[in-house]
Structure formats: structure tokens, C-alpha cells
Design a binder for these strands. Sequence first.
DNA 1: GAGTTCCC
DNA 2: TTAG
Length: 209
Amino acid sequence: MTGTGRAAGPDGFILLPGYFDRAAQESLLADVLAGIDAAPLYQPSMPRTGAPLSVQMSNFGPLGWIADRKGYRYEPVHPVTGRSWPPLPQALLELWNAVSGWPQPPQACLVNIYGPDARMGLHIDADEDARNAPVVSISLGDRARFRLGGPERKSPTRSMVLSSGDVVVLGGASRRFYHGVDRIYPGTSTLLPEPFAPGRINLTLRRVN
DNA sequence: GAGTTCCC
DNA sequence: TTAG
């Protein structure tokens, strides 16, 4: 048993479809919008080249993930405002306790805002010292095609559609698997308000150290 | 469209 | 090294 209440696959990957019902999604969305008010969205960019990522980002929690020309890293403050990130919403702490199986609380919640054409190239989450702590992801808004590979870039991949309210846990070996978002399916959810619709919000909870 | 590799 |  993993303590998640549902069986993980041999890779430690878990998809929990419809974990959050509509009311819970609306409550989470309110938390996210309040957080973005305090910690405005910013445009991350690739190290060295400065090429912008197609998503916009913010963070909750003691640490936030930053991508800019200098590199990828965790920082305790917003790169533009210099203020601390807003605290982690209680509902996300409860989710972590329910599904992660990890004894310590999450330290970061990355907020990724996808427009209708945004994507996330295949990558491994590798900026955390806590490489064995699961990553827990929540989908809000339009559906997305999520791709999960293996430990090497050339590993075969599989894909699945993630819908609003779905929760994904990358635990065990899958914590170090390549993954990404191929595309958004615009107009497939009524959750998000302007200017976030059509689009998708993804929240990822991580233990950093 | 899916899968894989390479380049800046 | 790096989610482009």
C-alpha cells in the first residue's frame, strides 16, 4: 500500500480522475485567483537563450520555481515584486496529505497558466533536492493531453487526457520520468473566467528539500 | 498524430 | 542539463 488510498501502477504513477468535484474546483479556483492577485503572473524564460515559455507562472508556498536566463531554481520571493509567495491554500495541503504518502508538507506550488496554444515540452522535474518526494498535480479548466515517458528521453511514451478536477501523482520511479503537455483542448470546460478561458490552470505541489 | 532526435 |  502506498497510503494514497488507491493503487499506484508499478511505476508509482497515479491518475485520480474527478478527484475534485465542481464545487471544490470553484473553491480552488478562488484560491488561485486570490494568489495571483498577491503574486502576479510572470513570463518565465529559458536559461541562456531567454526564449519565453508559452505558459505564465506564479507560485504559492515558502518556495517558488523560477525560470529565467540565469537558470531554473527555487526562490522564496516573487521575481518581480520581491515579496514572499502567498501561503499554500489549505485544500492543497489536505490533498497532499491524502495522496502523496510523504511525511513532510509540500514547500512549493507552481501555478502554470496555459492559454489555448500553450504547451509544455517533455522534461523531468530535476530542480528539487527531494528527488524522491512525489509531485502532485491538479488540473483546472480546459482538458489537456498529458504525455508521460520514462527515465530517458528516448523512453517510449504514453498519453492521456486530463480534465478539470483530475489529480495526478508522480511517485516512485515515475517521479523521475519525462512528462509534458502536448496540447490544450480549448472550450472543453466552463470553470475558468475571462481572461483565463479558453485555457487551463495546472497546480503542482512539490517538496523541495 | 505519435515518437524520437537534434540544435541553439 | 534545463520545461523553447
